[in-house]
């Protein structure tokens, strides 16, 4: 019995060693393995089956439609050029709109009140940006005009010093983020009509708020879809989910009558 047990243990150990050697670091699917901190290197390591140092659409075997988001220059291949600098949030994305709001609030306010209208934004641009440097005052905001004055115009937004805001905001180029949402004709500058389209499209032409929400706001007012989602005082939407180790499931409603449950929703990114 003891010899059989020793043989089984040895066999299992050998099998485990074989499994470890044969497992690619990319077998843990959708995440870069330890030590790989370059996005292009990760993608090449995972998808470049012909070893040419590029990833073609045919080699990219993941969910369809996603290749285009990675292939930022649209040449049909994932190359280092697609990963130069930070990716700018896509036009119309929630992140792009939200970041643009905060950047506009930082740099284009005249009144430091966490609300920005199109008129205030454009008055700030014509007063403090248009015509600065060696550029003409022509009613168009250029990247040169923005760059030569924006640090001096940086306003104060309540909450902008929080680690969460810094995590999202500070690594990104404010001009690039705003231009992705505003510069509709992609002529590398921004005009009043383009800012107006941004306000019209996402805020019905009204001033928008930015920074932390007003704590006195009643979340159940009006037609706010978010207010109708899991509102305070109503039965919590039930769910049955699996633990991270995959061993058990838990149903939220089973905790009722026993103890309060804090739900922390989030992800690694």
């Amino acid at each position: 019995m003891q010899n059989h047990a020793l043989l089984s243990a040895t066999t299992l150990t050998l099998l485990a060693c074989v499994a470890c050697r044969s497992a690619s670091p990319y077998d843990r699917a959708s995440m870069a393995p330890e030590g790989v901190d370059d996005a292009f290197a990760y993608l090449v390591g995972k998808y470049d089956t012909d070893g040419d140092g590029l990833v073609s659409q045919a080699e990219y075997t993941r969910a369809s439609g996603r290749f285009g988001r990675l292939d930022s220059d649209g040449d049909g291949f994932l190359t280092p050029d697609d990963f130069q600098g930070l990716q700018v949030p896509e036009r119309g994305s929630g992140m792009g709109i939200g970041m643009s709001q905060r950047f506009m609030g930082r740099y284009f306010q005249l009144e430091q009140d966490a609300t920005l209208s199109l008129d205030e934004l454009w008055d700030c641009i014509t007063t403090h940006y248009d015509g600065k440097g060696d550029t003409p005052a022509d009613g168009v905001l250029t990247q040169e005009e923005f760059a030569c004055t924006h640090e001096g115009r940086r306003g104060t937004i309540r909450g902008d010093d929080s680690p969460m805001v810094q995590k999202f905001m500070d690594p990104h180029d404010p001009w690039a983020v705003m231009a992705a949402q505003v510069d509709l004709d992609q002529d590398a500058d921004m005009e009043r009509d383009e800012f107006a389209a941004f306000f019209d499209t996402y805020f019905d032409g009204e001033p928008f708020d930015f920074g932390p929400k007003d704590e006195s706001a009643d979340a159940t007012d009006g037609d706010d879809e978010d207010a109708r989602t899991a509102p305070v005082g109503q039965r919590a939407p039930d769910f049955t989910l699996t633990t991270v180790d995959g061993r058990t499931t838990h149903t939220l409603s089973t905790f009722a009558g026993d103890r309060p449950v804090a739900l922390i929703f989030g992800s690694y990114t």
């Binding site: 959708s30 995440m31 901190d37 996005a39 996603r66 990675l70 930070l86 690594p171 989030g266 990114t269």
Partner: peptide, 24 residues
């Protein structure tokens, strides 16, 4: 994932954030 590499609001490119493709 809020900011997968292949999402509409990607992170993980030059910003020190984790490199994660959106799990399928």
């Amino acid at each position: 994932e809020a900011h997968a590499l292949d999402s509409r609001a990607p992170m993980g490119i030059g910003d020190g954030m984790p490199i994660v493709e959106d799990p399928v």
